[in-house]
């Protein structure tokens, strides 16, 4: 389902994005990641984004093992997608209680084109887990150090994280091994 064109008076965004949700059911895993992934919708304007966002539970209110994914339209939130194959992600582990605020700041920076890395950004994920929550920002080219450094610096600036927060970069090919 492609995003509808921005309506009259709406504010278009640089790239259209799609919102996805996934939840792992407790117990034995009989379904693949692909099967747990639910497409929520695509948007092409700031107002369309908020129309989805305001109807969703905040990340901190989700139970169990849940993820929101916001990726550029046409990129599936998985390593195997062509846009992600040579890419990687910055991973930020958060103490419980701050995920909703940090996720919103991350998403707004991405939709507002604050990263200044051209078309390098693929998408963002918030992962709700039992002990901690995890933010990740995916980009196309893992070995482009200028881009990954710029993304890291922007993440630090926009997230306003506690000083002891650890940021880690992972290539998707390492994750596959």
């Amino acid at each position: 389902t492609p995003a509808p064109p921005p309506g009259s008076g709406e504010h278009p965004i640089q790239f259209n994005y799609s919102l996805w949700f996934s939840k792992r059911t407790p117990g034995k895993q009989t379904t693949s990641y692909d099967q747990t992934l639910r497409f929520v919708g695509s948007f092409a304007s700031v107002e369309q984004f908020w129309s989805y966002y305001t109807h969703l539970s905040r990340p901190s209110e989700l139970s169990g093992h849940s993820d929101y994914h916001i990726f550029k339209e046409g990129i599936r939130p998985m390593w195997e997608d062509d846009a992600n194959k040579a890419g990687g992600k910055w991973i930020i582990r958060l103490k419980k209680g701050i995920a909703s605020r940090c996720w919103e700041n991350l998403v707004l920076a991405m939709l507002g084109e604050q990263f200044m890395v051209g078309g390098e950004v693929c998408g963002a994920v918030v992962s709700i887990r039992y002990q901690e929550d995890i933010l990740s920002l995916w980009n196309r080219t893992a070995n482009d150090h200028v881009t990954t450094s710029r993304i890291r610096d922007t993440l630090k600036r926009i997230l306003n994280l506690p000083p002891n927060t650890i940021m880690e970069y992972k290539c998707h090919t390492d994750s596959l091994k």
Partner: peptide
């Protein structure tokens, strides 16, 4: 072409727009 850039404050303001359903 031109890049469409928005800051956080502006995006939050749009949240209250009557266009946001």
């Amino acid at each position: 072409g031109t890049r469409i850039v928005y800051d956080r404050a502006f995006l939050l303001q749009c949240r209250n727009s009557p266009l946001t359903k």
